[in-house]
Amino acid sequence: MKLQQSLALLFLASLSSIACAAPLKVAGIPDDKKLHLTLVKEVVKRSDRFDGIEYIYAQTGQPADTRLQADLESGKLDILWTATSTDLEKRFIPVRFPIFRGLLGMRIGLIHQKDSQLLSSVQSKADLMRFKICSGKTWPDTHILDANGLVTAQSLKYPNMFEMMLAGNRCHFFARGVMEPFAEVAYHPELPLAVDSNIMLRYRMPYMIFVSKSNPDLADHLLEIMTEIFDEGLYEEMFFNDSEVKAVLSQANLDNRVIIELDNPYLTDETRSIPERFFYNPLQP
């Protein structure tokens, strides 16, 4: 009789769990192969809180960041993914798992084709101060470069920076995330663009998932599952099998560059304390 009662209680508990499960509301589209969605799909598969994923902008198209953030606060969205900032961490709760394992804070330069050896003598931040770096006027990266005493030439308009760099009188190279410059060279065959092969700037700018301030238990739940995925070794497989990451590692030659370490003064102490093991270091075997 006791065994029957125990089985009945287990059955009722499982029904209750199923009844409480709901879809996780996210941006993006179902067939998106981006690394952050690959991770989210695995998290949902392992969680007893969700019965699937709802892509709330699948029919209308993804809105601007300001709308995404407003929808997260209102509960229309459950999570959003973006590069962190102190302002975002005041407004939302970050799930402190760096999805791109630090690649977002690795910057390499677009240069003029004739300047392939322009940066070959750079061995330190002091050496780099001889050069002007093109960057967006409102970009977080520009604020980091400025805070480190580097010389920047800024523009509000992204296309202008190609002209500024190629003209040779405004800046020497255009600092880009490691995932960006090779695609830009391919996209602009009419321009004499090349990717510098000598140096890489590196600072911490984790790309993380954020949840509403009203949902701290969700942040804890997501981090627990993400840590489990990482500790099993599955996330390393996801990371190195991601098409964008593969392209970067095959083209950027990161382990043969001089790395110029920069400080990001716009990180919270909590984000600075993210375990080092979560980050990818191209200089480690």
Rank of each mutant, 00 (worst) to 15 (best):
L7D: 10
V44G: 14
T142Y: 03
Q113V: 04
G52S: 12
M200N: 02
Y207N: 09
Q154P: 15
I29K: 04
L128D: 12
F279A: 08
H188N: 06
I18N: 10
S14F: 14
P189Q: 00
L223N: 08
L3R: 04
P285I: 00
M200G: 03
D220A: 13
H221E: 13
F240K: 01
N253D: 15
R91Y: 15
M1C: 03
R204W: 13
S14E: 13
V178Q: 06
A147E: 08
P98S: 02
D217L: 06
L3W: 09
I199M: 06
P94G: 05
C134R: 01
S116F: 15
F239V: 06
A27E: 14
S124V: 03
L110G: 07
E261G: 07
L88N: 12
N169P: 05
Y187G: 05
I199W: 09
I225F: 14
R107M: 07
C20P: 01
D269H: 09
A167M: 09
D87R: 02
M200K: 04
T60K: 09
D263V: 07
V258E: 15
L191D: 10
F174G: 05
G149F: 06
G52R: 09
H221Y: 13
R46Q: 14
I144T: 03
S47V: 09
F182L: 00
A8F: 15
K132D: 13
R101K: 14
V258Q: 13
P98W: 02
Y55Q: 09
S243M: 02
S212G: 13
T60Y: 06
N198V: 01
E190F: 04
E261W: 12
T60Q: 11
S85Y: 10
G102T: 02
M205H: 11
T66S: 11
T227I: 12
F97S: 05
H188Y: 05
L7G: 02
Y203T: 02
L128Y: 12
T60N: 09
T84H: 14
C171A: 12
F173D: 14
V178L: 11
I29G: 00
S17L: 07
F97K: 00
L72C: 08
F210M: 05
K114M: 10
E237R: 12
L39P: 04
L103H: 04
Y266D: 12
S214F: 12
D71K: 02
F182Y: 15
S47R: 11
E270N: 08
A70P: 02
T268S: 15
E73F: 10
Q251G: 10
V44E: 15
H143Q: 06
L218P: 07
F210H: 10
F240R: 03
